[in-house]
């Protein structure tokens, strides 16, 4: 093996030249990336929250979803629809699971009507929703919504938690590590974290910042100027039923309504994760069995 060892040694020398070149390139990138990260973090920092439905085992908290619905109903419905959620969904497993009768009563007393259908004479009509209908908002379409809100469109909230995220600003040398941690811990709650930060993020603008007419200062919103007036009020939070045993605060309201909207965005989360663990367990056992079979088969030959 003499010549082999010699050439191995040479290869290492050859390689070291390249390695030094790579290290040099990395050293050149480092200062720039670090500076860049610092610049970004000076902007809006959004903290991660603890959620019952977080991570790879989390499930929705039914009581929290019910409280969250109450906040949604008393506050958000004034401007926002929830058209991809149907009243019947509120009774389904994995959701707030209100009783069927309560759903019927809720649909029948909903402040907004279903439009777009025709009566026997062919005239468009509005009618009360039923359990199978969408949880519509106050506006029939976006044009009407904009006109009523001075040009700002209150978005439908059915997918708001899925449609929002937190931008990561990690520098290149640690980015992969954050990614790995998120993958291993099953982090999917960036939308909820953002929404919570937005709901509790209304503050007086700092000195030197002027806020436009009809705009509000919010630390979580991109650009810090938001057309939505603060929906939750610190001194007059949405009060919960006494039997809920939860003290009503602005933060609690924000947390609960965020959880409710997270469910509205992803109503199959509970089933998904439960089935996921069964599938993972099955795959793990089968992989081990197949590995043992493979090892046994390959033990017949040298390889």
């Amino acid at each position: 093996m003499g010549p082999m060892q010699r050439s191995m040694k040479r290869s290492w020398l050859n390689g070291r030249v390249v390695a030094i070149a790579v290290a040099g390139a990395m050293a050149a990138v480092l200062p720039f990336s670090a500076a860049n990260a610092a610049g970004d973090s000076a902007g809006h920092a959004i903290e991660r929250q603890e959620w019952s439905f977080g991570g790879f085992t989390g499930q929705y908290d039914q009581a929290q979803l019910q409280r969250g619905f109450q906040v949604y109903q008393q506050v958000c419905t004034a401007c926002h629809g929830l058209k991809r959620v149907r009243f019947r969904n509120l009774a389904e497993p994995g959701g707030p699971m209100f009783p069927e009768a309560a759903i019927k009563a809720l649909a029948a007393s909903w402040p907004y009507q279903i439009s777009g259908e025709l009566d026997d004479q062919g005239n468009p009509i509005d009618r009360l929703p039923g359990p199978a209908d969408q949880m519509v908002g106050p506006y029939k379409n976006d044009v009407q919504a904009r006109a009523a809100q001075g040009g700002a469109l209150p978005p439908d909230l059915s997918l708001i938690v899925k449609a929002r995220t937190i931008e990561t600003h990690a520098p290149w040398y640690s980015h992969w590590f954050h990614m790995l941690v998120d993958i291993v811990t099953g982090y999917q709650e960036a939308g909820a974290d953002y929404l919570y930060a937005l709901l509790v993020g209304y503050h007086e603008p700092p000195a030197g910042v002027t806020v436009g007419d009809g705009m509000y200062y919010n630390t979580a919103f991109h650009g810090n100027q938001l057309a939505m007036p603060p929906p939750l009020i610190k001194d007059a939070p949405v009060e919960y039923q006494p039997e809920a045993g939860v003290k009503a605060t602005l933060e609690q309201n924000a947390r609960d309504v965020t959880a409710f909207l997270a469910w509205a965005s992803d109503p199959t989360l509970d089933t998904r994760k439960r089935l996921g663990w069964q599938v993972m367990l099955y795959l793990l056992i089968t992989t081990v069995l197949l590995y043992l079979v493979k090892r046994k088969i390959w033990s017949r030959i040298e390889h």
Partner: peptide
């Protein structure tokens, strides 16, 4: 090629178990 002695029982059981798992899945 060194062919080692077979352990038919264990291997048959393994193959059977693995095939059954894969098929049920």
């Amino acid at each position: 090629m060194a062919i080692e002695a077979e352990e038919p029982d264990r291997r048959d059981f393994l193959v059977l178990a693995a095939s059954a798992f894969a098929a049920v899945g």
